Simulated assay, not measured.
Amino acid sequence: MNLVEKYKTYRKVLVKLHMKILDEFVSQSDFERGGKILDIVKNNKVVFQYYNEKDILFDFIIYEKIRDGHSALSEYEKRYGAKNSNEEEILAAMKLSETSLYEVIGINKENSTILLRDILNNSKKSKLLDIGLSKSINTNVLVFTRLIKFDEFNMTSGLGLAFSGNYRDFLIRKSKKIMKKTKSGDTSVDRFVAFFKLSRTDGIPILFESVK
């Protein structure tokens, strides 16, 4: 199995895990709680501004610690565990995943890879494997995403908020202000809220592979 084939296999498993967690382990109150934290609840209803915001909410509910200091992902893994070796490896990587703002510094369409520089964490470089994104994205783009890291490659959770590279300083400055106002008690939650709000005002469209 070559790298792209392994990536496709892992992504299918990831999609199934997301669906299991959302369908079997996340309640309506979890959706409402997530929507309130992201400030997208109006008249007791979650209101989406763009087509992809439902998937963004799903990512937030699955990965962020909004259930009394725990994530739906960690509680699911603790209760049900992995069904096979692939699930075990992927669940472990999912639990270690984090969001950050990345600068696109290189694209290899033939290999479906993108070289990223982590703007928020000492400019660390990571190579992302993403078939859809590698065909549609350009350099001078900033991407807020959640990387799931394996020994041979990295992939995203499906979360992707894009901004013009020209907005770098503005985004860093503005996100810090929003995070201070959010004050959820969890830096990861505050960061997610900040960049979600910024995506509504200053984001640009990109094509990530859909994960539901």
Score class of each variant (00 low, 15 high):
V4N: 12
K6F: 03
Y7N: 08
Y7C: 03
T9V: 12
L14P: 02
L14Y: 06
K16T: 10
I21L: 06
F25R: 01
V26K: 10
S27H: 05
S29Q: 07
S29Y: 00
F31I: 11
E32G: 00
E32A: 09
R33Y: 10
G34E: 02
K36T: 14
I37R: 01
I37G: 01
L38G: 03
D39N: 15
I40Q: 05
K42Y: 06
N43Q: 12
N43K: 11
K45T: 14
V46A: 07
V46Q: 09
V47W: 09
Q49T: 12
N52M: 10
K54F: 10
D55A: 13
D55Q: 13
D59H: 06
I62W: 02
Y63G: 00
K65V: 03
K65G: 00
D68Y: 09
E75D: 13
E75Y: 08
Y76E: 00
E77S: 14
Y80R: 13
E87W: 03
M94Y: 01
M94S: 07
M94L: 15
L96G: 00
S100V: 01
L101T: 07
Y102V: 01
I107P: 04
I107L: 06
K109T: 06
K109S: 07
S112K: 15
S112N: 15
S112Y: 15
L116S: 02
L116V: 01
R117P: 04
R117Y: 08
I119R: 09
N121A: 08
N121V: 10
K124A: 09
K124G: 07
K127D: 11
L128V: 00
L128K: 04
D130I: 06
G132V: 04
G132K: 05
N138W: 12
T139G: 07
N140R: 15
V141F: 03
V141Q: 06
L142C: 03
L142H: 01
F144G: 02
T145A: 05
T145W: 06
L147M: 05
I148K: 04
K149E: 14
E152P: 02
L159V: 05
L161D: 11
A162V: 01
F163Y: 14
F163C: 08
R168M: 09
I172S: 05
R173L: 13
K176T: 09
K177W: 08
I178K: 12
I178M: 07
T182F: 10
K183I: 11
V189L: 10
D190L: 04
V193I: 14
A194L: 06
F195Y: 08
F196T: 03
K197L: 15
S199D: 14
T201V: 13
D202P: 06
P205W: 11
E209M: 10
V211F: 14
